[in-house]
């Protein structure tokens, strides 16, 4: 054990600041933002494009840091998050707050000055949405927290597109809708097999508040509009057959896995395999669709 007296200021490690930005979540954010940018009908200067993606990543990191600053008490109660820098006592809350606010301001300013103000505006909205609407307002109050809060994670393709074109069109709006509608089945599948963790922390996730049956039905119901948003760009003539075929097949498999989860009943000592499979596949599904979109645009 350390002999450092509590009155002595121990600086946090730089790796803890990195952990504060939730790098794993950032991967998906960067990927969908990059695909939104590459799917745009106009090219973007590589340096400006790189800067835009970096700003999206920094903005997401800032939102993650502010989320961890606000939820330090909650994170301490859950096994999955108890080792994060704040609940583990490796960093002061003040440092996390300053880091988060500083990073948010920097990412928005750089996006505005180097890329364009439309992209900077949407980046600002996405950070504020994640921190204020999801983290502060909804997460501890309603089981619909991730439905509305999911919008925060849906902004990156919109920002990527806006970075390239300076405006918003139907296709990035559909991509926004896809990620927005994908979030509930994705997170509720996770919440079904980590229910105890959320219950211990008092987070009103749907399985905790409304029960497993309702959650399963909701997973099935949200998959329907998600499937429409995923396939729609093809019949609307916004993408070609490459995206259309991959989206149709990928979505059919998603719908199958979601239907299995929706119609299933938990048995004693259940290993929750179908729920884990849906959760894992949902991540692959999003990568697949956005990847197909870029291939379709450049093929």
């Amino acid at each position: 054990m350390s002999s450092i007296p509590s009155s002595v200021f121990v600086p946090a490690d730089w790796r803890d600041f990195l952990a504060l930005t939730k790098p794993r979540v950032m991967t998906l954010v960067v990927f969908t933002g990059l695909c939104g940018m590459l799917a745009a009908p106009v090219g973007i200067d590589p340096v400006i494009g790189f800067t835009a993606i970096m700003c999206i990543a920094l903005g997401a990191g800032a939102a993650g840091a502010l989320n961890q600053w606000y939820e330090a008490d909650l994170d301490a109660l859950m096994k999955r998050t108890a080792k994060r820098p704040l609940p583990a006592g490796r960093m002061s809350r003040e440092s996390a707050l300053h880091f988060g606010v500083g990073l948010a301001c920097f990412s928005v300013l750089l996006m505005g000055l180097a890329v364009n103000y439309v992209a900077a505006g949407i980046l600002t909205v996405s950070i504020l949405f994640y921190v204020l609407v999801y983290t502060v307002w909804l997460k501890r109050r309603t089981p619909q927290n991730i439905v509305i809060g999911g919008a925060a994670g849906a902004f990156p393709p919109l920002i990527g597109w806006a970075a390239a074109t300076g405006e918003i069109a139907l296709l990035p709006f559909l991509l926004f809708s896809l990620v927005f509608l994908w979030t509930p089945p994705h997170f509720w599948a996770l919440a079904l097999f980590v229910k105890t963790d959320y219950a211990n922390a008092g987070v009103p996730m749907l399985p905790v508040v409304a029960g497993e049956r309702v959650t399963r039905v909701q997973i099935g119901l949200y998959t329907i509009p998600m499937a429409i948003a995923a396939v729609a760009p093809w019949p609307l003539g916004l993408t070609g057959a490459i995206y259309g075929v991959i989206a149709t097949v990928g979505t059919a498999l998603f719908a199958l896995y979601a239907a299995i989860v929706a119609f299933r009943h938990t048995v004693p000592d259940d290993t929750m395999k179908p729920e884990k499979r849906l959760f894992k596949y949902s991540i692959l599904y999003l990568f697949l669709l956005f990847g197909a979109l870029v291939v379709d645009r450049w093929a």
């Binding site: 350390s2 002999s3 450092i4 007296p5 002595v8 121990v10 600086p11 946090a12 490690d13 730089w14």
Partner: peptide, 20 residues
Amino acid sequence: MTPDDSNRIRAKQRARATVM
């Protein structure tokens, strides 16, 4: 605070300064 603790704090500060 022992010299070891002091060295550890110094090492953290140095690493942070390098990254910055």
